[in-house]
Nucleic acid binder design. Structure first.
Lengths: 96, 96
DNA sequence: CTTTTAGTTCAAAAGTTATTTAACTATAGA
DNA sequence: TCTATAGTTAAATAACTTTTGAACTAAAAG
């Protein structure tokens, strides 16, 4: 396996790990169906857990490249990182 | 969430967990590119681990519905369970 | 400047998954 | 029947992930 293949494999594994969790799938579903960015508190409500745990899941999704976060004042707005899905899991978002 | 949605979510999580592992991705890659069924020993060689560990990974893939196994005498022949990929991850197999 | 709001980080505990080794089952061949 | 081959299973352990609660940072409002 060459280096790009290895990196692709690592990227895939990170993404699949991030997707292999009910809370994180719920977060993605909420984001995808909302159509636009939401703040952490709003998303946190829908996933029924503590804010520190929600923050942990946001980080996991961010590090897998599945969401992106924009900071504005106190609030952080997150949204689906569509490019990653298109590259690694074409067609998946529409099945959510 | 209704029962079908829940079951779909559980199915997805099982699949993503199964895909979130280097050894199992290697097994799927080998199977997909071979174009036809291979026996456990052949697949085991390509994933560089003990036979019991290979067997553990086969089981994980089987239980996620990602491979199917046909028994013939002593040998077991496995192949990609294409329907599952088509349903849950359309387009993914071709990126492997 | 003090307090509230929004969110992150840290460390410990709890839970889950992967690896290892040895024992096991089932079929095939001598 | 005895032995080899192909693979599974079980139990222990190692490695990893998730949850929790408390302490923290940074911006906004009073």
């Amino acid at each position: 396996m060459n280096i790009e293949q290895l990196e692709l494999t690592e990227k895939r594994i990170k993404i699949f790990k991030a997707l292999a969790d009910e809370t994180r799938l719920a977060i993605l579903k909420t984001l995808y169906h909302s159509g636009n960015e939401l703040n952490c508190t709003e998303v946190g409500f829908t996933c029924d857990t503590s804010k520190s745990n929600a923050s942990y899941h946001f980080k996991t999704l961010r590090e897998a490249g599945l969401i992106k976060v924009r900071k504005d004042g106190q609030a952080r707005y997150m949204s689906i990182y569509k490019e990653t899905f298109d590259q690694i899991l074409p067609g998946f978002l529409d099945t959510l």
